[in-house]
Nucleic acid binder design. Sequence first.
DNA 1: CCAGACGTTGTT
DNA 2: GTCTGG
DNA 3: CCAGACGTTGTT
DNA 4: GTCTGG
Length: 230
Amino acid sequence: MCGRYALNATAGDLIEHFGLISCPEWNARYNIAPQSSIPVIRLKPGAGRVGQLVRWGLIPSWAKDPSIGNKLNNARSETAADKPAFRSSFRRHRCLIPANGFYEWQAIEVEAKVRKQPWYIHPTEPGALFAFAGLLAAWNTPAGDTLVTTCILTTGPNALMVPIHDRMPVILAPEQFDTWLDPDNPDVDGLRGLMQPCDPDLMAAYPVSPAINRGSAEGSECIKPVEVVS
DNA sequence: CCAGACGTTGTT
DNA sequence: GTCTGG
DNA sequence: CCAGACGTTGTT
DNA sequence: GTCTGG
């Protein structure tokens, strides 16, 4: 779950919304897929929150083969603190991933065949952004460079998501940002406690065209509401 | 102890 | 690096 | 997440 | 079936 999302905010929007001290330029995107370079927000101790572009698909520091990053787009929040692939990232390298909304595919049966209807889920409040809870990892390339990668934590569905899908991203509220982002926060149990489905009243959803399925589809038509054809 | 895996999603 | 399986 | 490819050898 | 690319 959460394998596709939209971020059409500008760097200025992110700076304002999340109180960043810096943020790389960003061109609006409506169909961001794993392996893309995406902006994450992390806390630079003693300085403040910064935006940084990293690759979506976590490569643990110990990986010999970076292709493991093709699979680690998400981490189950229920177990991430304990799994070898995510443990050290959960302890020390947490981030937020800003999004205007995300996509989920709803399996619906039509004439005894399963069809997948994509939905777009966005904040109820106009102009608001989601902040997904994410993890970071730094991997040393054979060439001697450092490749920073990320993944999105997932959790069970809230009431809005239940009809659509059985997983959703962990979405944090502004009052939780500091606790989550502080790399020196040693309270793993407290961090675990943040890993909950968010209040369903904060989100709204509508179906979109299956044109989104194609990873190369781009533009605001990706989030245009459609009638469900059944 | 060493060797080998280390993950999620969805689908069967 | 750290955990699980043998 | 879904779509689309999935291979080698040798030659240009 | 499984991996890579978008």
